[in-house]
């Protein structure tokens, strides 16, 4: 992988680049600062008419309220969100990898139609299928269960698209070598293709984690007991109630973002590398 070098750039232009980067970074970081600041302010300060850079006194009551909340205990919600995201990420990525490999590398007549069938689902807005899906899951007894929460989200057509792109570029020699060793298609997949796609798997796994963590509508209608609420649902309890508890709202928002941000910071290297493996660029 060769990096592009901008040789011949003068020092001035390099400084210019850094300056521009910083200028752009400010509006990107601003909302995070606001989120943090808001979570430490009181209700009165949040409703005030003058701008504040930072609260007068750091107020942690919002966090206390959010975790202490008897209707929507944030701790339990965090656990649920983690469970859902941690189970969904590897499973959905694995399923997509399997299907992506099959349509990319197994020469059967059905490969293209199946691929198109999978991709077609990307064009239908989730809203179109939301209510019927809910009824389907409900009639299977999935309401208020963990499987009802997790299973419908395991089938990610976009990931199949990416995996297919990646596997299409998989070197034929490796597959041939595996064949010579006596491996069938499944064997080639399990022992050669899959391990070598770890980068993309990691990348898509992280993206799936994020998407599941941030999902709101589905967990709302599936989870009836507060025991099943995810973080986003728990957070919404502070928002549509008649008396909005803003510090608790922002505190739970901070709590909902931090785990993701951490996962992100750790894994963003993978994500970048993973994207480069899909061949989507060219």
């Amino acid at each position: 992988m060769r990096t592009v070098r901008r040789r011949g750039g003068r020092e001035g232009s390099r400084v210019g680049s850094y300056l521009a980067a910083v200028v752009f970074a400010i509006p990107f970081l601003l909302p995070f600062y606001l989120l943090l600041r808001n979570s430490l302010m009181t209700q009165a300060e949040l409703g005030a008419l003058e701008w504040r850079w930072w609260p007068e006194k750091i107020n942690l009551q919002g966090f206390v309220d959010a975790f202490d909340n008897s209707t929507a205990p944030l701790g339990r919600a965090l656990f649920n969100s983690t469970m859902v995201a941690v189970v969904s990420a590897p499973v959905s990525t694995l399923l997509a990898s399997m299907a992506g490999y099959a349509v990319a590398r197994i020469r059967v007549a059905a490969a293209r139609p199946v691929f198109l069938l999978v991709i077609a689902t990307m064009m239908v807005p989730g809203a179109a299928t939301f209510v019927p899906t809910f009824v389907v899951v409900g009639s299977m007894g999935g309401v208020n269960t963990l499987w009802g929460l997790i299973v419908p989200g395991l089938f990610n057509a976009f990931a199949v698209l990416l995996f297919r792109g990646f596997y299409l570029r998989f070197p034929q020699e490796i597959e041939d070598a595996g064949r010579v060793d006596g491996l069938g298609h499944l064997g080639v997949y399990l022992r050669l293709a899959l391990p070598n796609s770890a980068g993309l798997i990691a990348a898509l796994g992280v993206l799936s984690f994020i998407e599941n963590w941030n999902a709101f509508l589905w967990p709302l209608v599936i989870g009836q007991d507060p025991a099943y609420w995810t973080v986003q649902v728990a957070m919404s309890t502070n928002l549509t109630a008649q008396a909005i508890n803003m510090p608790a709202l922002f505190a739970s928002a901070v709590v909902s973002v931090i785990p993701l941000a951490v996962v992100f910071l750790v894994a963003q290297r993978w994500i970048v590398r993973g994207v480069m493996l899909t061949g989507i660029k060219g």
């Binding site: 209707t71 009824v135 309401v143 009836q224 507060p226 728990a234 109630a241």
Partner: peptide, 20 residues
């Protein structure tokens, strides 16, 4: 007793469509 947070209406409308 189920105490429904957030969008009660959506949840309710969806649920009355099912036996649950």
């Amino acid at each position: 007793v189920t105490w429904v947070p957030g969008d009660y209406k959506t949840k309710l409308q969806s649920s009355v469509l099912t036996p649950e």
